[in-house]
């Protein structure tokens, strides 16, 4: 059913720390691996060793450079996957009911056996979170690893999305953003987490933590790093003066 639920019991989602992500793309690979081997059609690649390879991914890492008014530019890595929006436009446009948002946890899913591959949901998503599988011709998107997080066959510590589990930098967090006391909600609160493109009216559940204003302050160790040889003496001093005269 492509009508969106009024509210969902929980709002499971990700919190992604732009301050911490090192841009290693491990989450991209972990996601592709898990979602190729488990629930749904495998994430296919077409012409993988040819001149024009193309493949379906549910998570991709973009890198952005930010140039402040003064000071050096900074580089940020931004992993992007479905944000499991509360007002998900991708769900309401779907003509078949293949796309839906779950009442119990807010996860947005595609029922692949109902999908006609019209692609309209991918057009409706402002974030580019949906990709048509090049082989199966059905819409693929992040499932929040719905087949891991409730999977009692997995050890407790593995019951989180593959991207979160694999991130070596600890830049990805998973939890219930509908519960103000959850660890993820607290993190968003403490770090001023933001929505991507709030003006698109999608009310995304996933949040992004902006970088801390670290480089604006001078390092506390800076005084100890002052050059000690401002006025060289002895041999260096003679060399300095001699070179000056030439």
């Amino acid at each position: 059913m492509t009508a969106l639920p009024e509210t969902t019991e929980r709002k499971l989602g990700l919190v992604i720390d732009l301050d911490t992500c090192v841009g290693c793309h491990a989450c991209v690979i972990a996601c592709k691996g898990w979602n190729t081997e488990n629930y749904g059609a495998p994430l296919a690649d077409a012409d993988a060793y040819g001149a024009d390879p193309v493949g379906a991914f549910l998570n991709r890492v973009h890198s952005f450079e930010v140039e402040p008014d003064s000071g050096p530019a900074q580089l940020f890595h931004m992993p992007k996957s479905c944000l499991h929006c509360e007002d998900a436009p991708c769900v309401t446009v779907c003509p078949t009911g293949a796309s839906f948002k779950r009442v119990e946890d807010g996860i947005v899913l595609v029922n692949e056996s109902d999908c006609i591959g019209c692609g309209l949901c991918a057009w409706a998503c402002p974030y580019g979170a949906r990709e048509m599988d090049p082989v199966e011709k059905v819409m693929k998107k992040c499932t929040l690893c719905v087949d891991r997080i409730y999977n009692e066959n997995l050890p407790e510590e593995d019951r989180e999305p593959a991207c979160v589990r694999t991130c070596p930098a600890g830049a990805r967090h998973f939890g219930d953003l509908g519960d103000p006391d959850s660890a993820v909600s607290q993190l968003v609160e403490a770090r001023g987490g933001v929505d991507l493109m709030p003006e698109q009216g999608t009310k995304p559940v996933n949040k992004y933590l902006p970088p801390r204003p670290r480089d604006a302050d001078i390092d506390v160790l800076a005084p100890y790093l002052e050059p000690v040889d401002a006025q060289p003496k002895g041999f260096l001093g003679w060399l300095d003066r001699a070179l000056e005269r030439i």
Binding site: H62, S63, F64, P210
Partner: peptide
């Protein structure tokens, strides 16, 4: 707005 980094300066795809 797409990256949430706009307040820091000029954003460019690197």
């Amino acid at each position: 707005s797409a990256t949430g980094l706009g307040h820091l300066g000029r954003v460019r795809l690197f």
